[in-house]
C-alpha cells in the first residue's frame, strides 16, 4: 500500500499496547500479501491474471474487500469502480462475480483488471481495528497516511479523536467512525471518472462514514461525482461528504 500507517492507543499499559499494535501491523502485512496488485501471487494478482470465465478462490479478507467495493460501486452508480483500469467495452457492473461460499471470484469479461487502491487502505484500517478489539484496545485512532482515519472509542475525557475535515478545515472529534480524503492537489491528476474517463471534477473530496473502507471508497467517488449526485448519496446513505473545487475554494457540505 506504500503508505505510512499510524496507530494511537489510549491505554495504561505501554507493553500491552506495543504487543497489540504489533499484532495489528502483522495483520496489515498479511493483508498486503493478499490485496496488492504488485505482490506476485497475491489474490489480486491472481484475479488480474484470470481469463474470462475462470474462478479464483481468495482469502476471506480479500473477498470481503471486493464485496464492499462492489457494494459501493452499485450505490454510487459506478462513480467508484475498482475495475476502472479494465479493457473498455465490458459492462462495469458485469465484470466480476462473487460467490460467498468458498470465497470465489469469477472474471466475467476479458481484460478485467482490479485495483483496490481506492478502498484498500480503509479496509486495512477496519481489519487492524478488529485486531485491536480482540486485544481489548477500545480507545484508538488508526491512520493510513494523512488521508484515511478510523477512530474507535474516544480517549478518556475527550469527545473523540481530533481530525481535520473539509477545505476550511473544520476540526471534528472522530469516534467510532472513519474519515477519508482524496484529491488531486498533492499527487496531481491521477483519478478519472470511471463512467466518463474524464479527469476528476474536483480538487479534493472528504467522506465521513461508519467504516474505513466505506469512507476511503466514498472519498474517491465524491471526487468524480457531481454536487447533486453527492448530496443525494449522502442523504440516502446517511454519510457526510465535502468538496473543494479548483481554483476557487468552495465548500459544499454534502
Amino acid at each position: 500500500m506504500a503508505t505510512t500507517f499510524t496507530i494511537r492507543v489510549a491505554h495504561p499499559d505501554a507493553r500491552e499496547v506495543r504487543c497489540a499494535v504489533e499484532a495489528a501491523f502483522a495483520e496489515l502485512d498479511w493483508l498486503e500479501t493478499q490485496l496488492s496488485r504488485f505482490v506476485e501471487g497475491s489474490d489480486v494478482w491472481r484475479i488480474n491474471r484470470l481469463r474470462q470465465g475462470e474462478t479464483a478462490v481468495v482469502s476471506l479478507p480479500t473477498f470481503r474487500c471486493l464485496d464492499q467495493a462492489l457494494q459501493v460501486q452499485r450505490q454510487t452508480a459506478g462513480a467508484f469502480d475498482i475495475t476502472y483500469a479494465s479493457t473498455p467495452g465490458s459492462n462495469p457492473a458485469r465484470r466480476l462475480g462473487l460467490t460467498p461460499t468458498g470465497c470465489k471470484v469469477q472474471k466475467l469479461a476479458e481484460g478485467v483488471q482490479i485495483d483496490l487502491g481506492g478502498i484498500g487502505k480503509g479496509f486495512a484500517l477496519d481489519c487492524m481495528a478488529s485486531v485491536l478489539h480482540e486485544w481489548d484496545m477500545t480507545s484508538a485512532r488508526l491512520s493510513a497516511s494523512t488521508s484515511t482515519h478510523l477512530a474507535l472509542d474516544a480517549p478518556p475525557n475527550q469527545r473523540g479523536w481530533p481530525v481535520g475535515f473539509g477545505p476550511e478545515p473544520q476540526r471534528v472529534a472522530l469516534r467510532r467512525e472513519a474519515l477519508a480524503a482524496s484529491g488531486v492537489g498533492v499527487k496531481g491528476q491521477h483519478i478519472v471518472d470511471p463512467r466518463s474517463r474524464q479527469p476528476a471534477h474536483h480538487l479534493r473530496a472528504w467522506a465521513r462514514a461508519p467504516r474505513g473502507a466505506l469512507a476511503d471508497a466514498l472519498s474517491t467517488a465524491f471526487l468524480v461525482m457531481t454536487h447533486s449526485e453527492r448530496e443525494r448519496y449522502c442523504r440516502h446513505w446517511h454519510v457526510e461528504g465535502a468538496i473543494q473545487d479548483a481554483p476557487t475554494r468552495n465548500h459544499h457540505p454534502g
Binding site: 500500500m1 505510512t4 500507517f5 499510524t6 506495543r18 501491523f25 506476485e40
Partner: peptide, 15 residues
Amino acid sequence: MQRRTFVSGSLAAGF
C-alpha cells in the same frame, strides 16, 4: 507507532 509498508513490484510482462 508507525510503519511503512512496501509494495514490491515486477515490471516485467508475463512470459
